[in-house]
Design a protein around this nucleic acid. Structure first.
Length: 422
RNA sequence: GGAGAGGUGGCAGAGCGGUUGAAUGCGUCAGUCUUGAAAACUGAAGUCCCCUUAAAAGGAUCGCGAGUUCGAAUCUCGCCCUCUCCGCCA
């Protein structure tokens, strides 16, 4: 969450920021609620001071009577603040983070500037199949039985593709570990307070999150949740920063109301495996850490030999906690673009600098060498989202006969160089 | 799932209705001493809220939430978590 003090002191800036980011939040109402709650809280504090003072001396019968009424007054005021407080908090949680000054301001979500086309798509001298067709032809994915067992937007990986999932995991872990990231395998469920602290809204109307019945647990949509919650309510030492983690988890998303035409097959599903980078850093180093995560993402996808480009989210497309987000978009020859032609760029990774927004929500601080205590900065970034990486590899590396060449970097982890069928 | 014990400051650990924000030890920081360090001695020190240019004052905080009471770390209830034993299980 954002610091209420910043909102109090810069209401116009915050309003403009909300507008740029398509966040419809009534800041005036938030500030009015803030004022109201502080006013009542001040009264409560005064009454409590009175009570505390009296309970330090021996109580006379008269004082006991007087304090009894003070107690009732306090209770009344507490009941009065309660709804104000909860409405205030609910509103505050929805205010997005500030925005990095270099982010392109646009209210159109499609306006993400392309920073760099790192590897261009290669021309194919045959009509490429999409990953669904390839999966069927080479017996690698079973959508129909997944639908039978689990419903729409699930899949079974089969044969070489099942092995490739684990090869991708190992490759992603190994690459990040070269950069001193500590490997993790995480819980796939997390408590509501963790989700909320990180800026996810598990019970909102259009939530992407599955909740577990009769509990306050949710299925995580990303290991950002399990790794972001990892240091909740902790005070870290600056000497121990940065904390660099690389985590494997399953990810679950309801994908309520999402398109199907442009998200065919394995592209947008309810469950997938993802390897995620996460960093806890000092405020001064978070921009550098963000660039580091981006550069590791590039290293990983250079190794996978996939054509890709980098985009820098515009204000309209930024998630609430992030001040800046870069995506890697891979070229997918089997994905139709808006003009219905085959081949389009599609998001395969995303890295965000969430500065102190999540740290404030989860109460994670660090103690500097000088002894100062402050919220630290938190960043996340995809190493590999397995499903989408597989799509990119399959569609770009397919041969005319439907066989698929495995990138060299993966061969030592999966033990084969090509997927072929007689 | 059943039985028992327990959750107190950075850590360990007292306190079990009123002057306790909390003994004591360890650790941390500053000072004295020392060429320097260690030891010893002296002193400082939690976090959050509110109000402030600042300081001071005030409030909250002893797992979380509710209750009893003039007054709760201390009593009651609910929840969460940890440990020991039993059962079950990959």
């Amino acid at each position: 969450m954002l610091d209420i003090k910043i909102i109090r002191e810069n209401p116009d800036l915050i309003k403009q920021n909300c507008q740029n980011r398509l966040a419809e939040i009534d800041i005036d109402k938030l500030l009015a609620l803030d004022e109201q709650r502080r006013e009542v809280l001040a009264k409560i504090d005064d009454l409590r001071a009175k009570r505390n003072a009296s309970s330090k001396t021996k109580p006379t019968p008269e004082i006991i009577v007087e304090m009894k009424s003070v107690g009732e007054e306090i209770k009344k005021l507490e009941e009065k603040v309660e709804p104000i407080e909860s409405e205030f908090k609910e509103l505050l949680l929805r205010v997005p983070n500030l925005t990095h000054p270099d982010v392109f301001v646009s209210q159109n979500e499609e306006d993400n500037p392309v920073v760099e086309i790192v590897k261009k798509p290669k021309k194919m001298d045959f009509e490429p199949l999409d990953h669904v067709q390839l999966g069927e032809k080479m017996d690698l994915i079973d959508f129909d039985r997944a639908t039978k067992v689990s419903g729409a937007k699930f899949y079974y990986l089969k044969n070489e593709l099942a092995v490739l999932e684990f090869a991708l995991i190992q490759y992603a872990l190994a690459t990040a570990m070269k950069h001193k990231f500590i490997p993790f395998s995480t819980p796939d469920l997390a408590k509501r307070e963790v989700l909320e602290g990180l800026g996810f809204n598990p019970r909102g109307e259009s939530t992407q999150i599955y909740n577990v019945e009769n509990s306050d647990l949710s299925l995580i949509g990303t290991a950002e949740i399990s790794m972001g919650g990892y240091h909740m309510n902790e005070l870290l030492d600056e000497a121990d920063l940065p904390k660099k983690y690389i985590a494997v988890s399953h990810c679950f998303r309801t994908e309520a109301g999402s398109y199907s035409k442009f998200s065919k097959g394995m592209f947008r599903v309810h469950q997938f495996t993802k390897i995620e980078m996460f960093q806890y850093v000092t405020p001064e180093t978070s921009e550098k850490a963000h660039q580091e995560i981006l550069s590791i993402e590039k290293e990983i996808f250079n190794g996978l030999e996939v054509p890709y480009r980098i985009v820098d989210h515009c204000t309209a497309d930024l998630g609430g906690p992030s001040i800046r987000t870069y995506d890697l978009e891979a070229w997918m020859p089997g994905k139709p673009n808006k003009e219905e032609k085959m081949g389009d760029w599609a998001e395969i990774t995303s890295t965000s600098n969430c500065t102190d927004y999540q740290a404030r929500g989860l109460n994670i601080k660090y103690k500097s060498k000088e002894g100062k205590v402050d919220y630290l900065h938190m960043l996340n970034g995809t190493a590999i989202a397995v499903g989408r990486a597989l799509i990119a590899i399959m569609e770009n590396n397919q041969q005319k006969d439907g066989s698929i060449i495995i990138p060299k970097a993966l061969q030592k982890y999966c033990g084969f160089k090509k997927i072929t069928r007689k």
